[in-house]
């Protein structure tokens, strides 16, 4: 069953300097309980995609086109009042920096209880019990005590656990995780990934894991979508994409990840920089940095789908054979 299907999503920012097409025609779909890694470098539009789904794009940005069909409702069309009842209840989100996610002047219990009461009619006491169980579920020791704490009394990893607990309070069907491990050190990262993964699996929630870290995605996601300059350039089952990338950009990304069996060699780089979002070139946005770019790339390539649902948006894709 499809939980979320995004079709031709466009989110543009109307700045004084011009229109920034942060998300410019993104399509993907998520099945129930599926985990999708949304990968890309900074500014590729992956976070904006997440915020668009939740209807939380800050001005001067707004969703200007496309559909976000979530359980039969187009989130891009519904009124804000309806959106509010879905946010935090059916669709939840966790953010990048756990130091900034929780309100510094409110206690953890206040912030959790209000999240429950915003969506369910129950007593404060019952909501508090839910909050306590929620904390226990994400592996926080002595949750009663932690509930009485203020955010600054908890470590970064602990706060991210709290954020995940908040996200799961109302049993959402979709969780959007916006680089939730980027600000944490590696041992904590693994724990957070594990907690989020387990909770999603147990409750059948779909998960969009936004990250620039391919290593995290490789171990977590069922499918991967690679974003570049506001578009998904390659998508497919995780193993296919990681082992046999087809888009030159994905190849470049994977090539620039250090790995243990290439010790001592020079790390590959993708030459150049991400294009200026205000003056996006026509055609393939990657062509100026692309080793395979030619005159043909001046027009926009369409998506070609290979066997197994491995899609790529390129005129000159790699053959997708597993790399040596």
């Amino acid at each position: 069953m499809t939980v979320l299907s995004v079709e031709g999503l466009k989110t543009h920012f109307f700045t004084r300097a011009g229109v920034v097409r942060a998300v410019d025609g993104v399509d993907f779909a998520l099945e129930r309980g599926e985990i999708m890694g949304l990968v890309g470098e900074s500014g590729s539009g992956k976070s904006v995609t997440g915020f668009s789904i939740l209807g939380l794009v800050d001005a001067p940005g707004r969703v200007v086109g496309g559909k976000i069909v979530f359980q039969g409702e187009d989130l891009a069309r519904i009124p804000e009042s309806r959106m509010r009842t879905l946010r935090g209840a059916k669709v939840a989100m966790i953010f990048q920096d756990p130091m900034m996610t929780l309100n510094p002047v409110l206690r953890i219990d206040t912030q959790m209880v209000e999240a429950v009461l915003a969506h369910r009619k129950m007593s404060r006491r019952e909501a508090w019990t839910l909050a306590r169980d929620g904390l226990a579920r994400v592996g926080i020791p002595s949750p009663e005590q932690r509930l009485r704490a203020y955010p600054h009394q908890l470590s970064g990893g602990m706060r991210q656990r709290v954020a995940i607990a908040v996200a799961f309070l109302n049993d959402p069907d979709l969780l959007i995780a916006d680089e939730p491990t980027t600000a944490l050190d590696v041992t904590i990262q693994a724990q957070i990934v594990h907690v989020a993964q387990t909770l999603c699996r147990d409750r059948g929630a779909a998960l969009i894991w936004i990250t620039h870290d391919l290593a995290v995605v490789a171990g977590l996601a069922d499918r991967v979508a690679v974003m570049y300059a506001g578009r998904i350039v390659e998508a497919g089952p995780t193993d296919d994409v990681i082992d046999g990338p087809r888009h030159p950009y994905t190849v470049g990304l994977l090539g620039s990840v250090p790995s243990a069996n290439r010790r001592g060699g020079r790390l590959a780089q993708i030459p150049g920089m991400t294009p200026d979002m205000l003056a996006m070139p026509d055609g393939c946005a990657f062509r100026e940095r692309c080793p395979r770019g030619d005159a043909m790339c001046g027009s926009a390539p369409d998506v070609t789908v290979a066997a197994g649902g491995h899609a790529v948006r390129c005129f000159h894709p790699h053959d997708g054979e597993a790399r040596a």
Binding site: L54, L56, D58, R84, T85, L86, R87, G88, A89, A92, M93, F95, Q96, D97, M100, T101, L102, N103, P104, Q111, E114, A115, A118, H119, A163, V166
Partner: peptide, 17 residues
């Protein structure tokens, strides 16, 4: 524009809160 305000919205809290 702080993250915790966005997070509060993401929790589905009414704007008044």
């Amino acid at each position: 524009h702080q993250d915790y305000i966005k997070f509060a919205r993401a929790k589905g809290l009414p704007e008044s809160r």
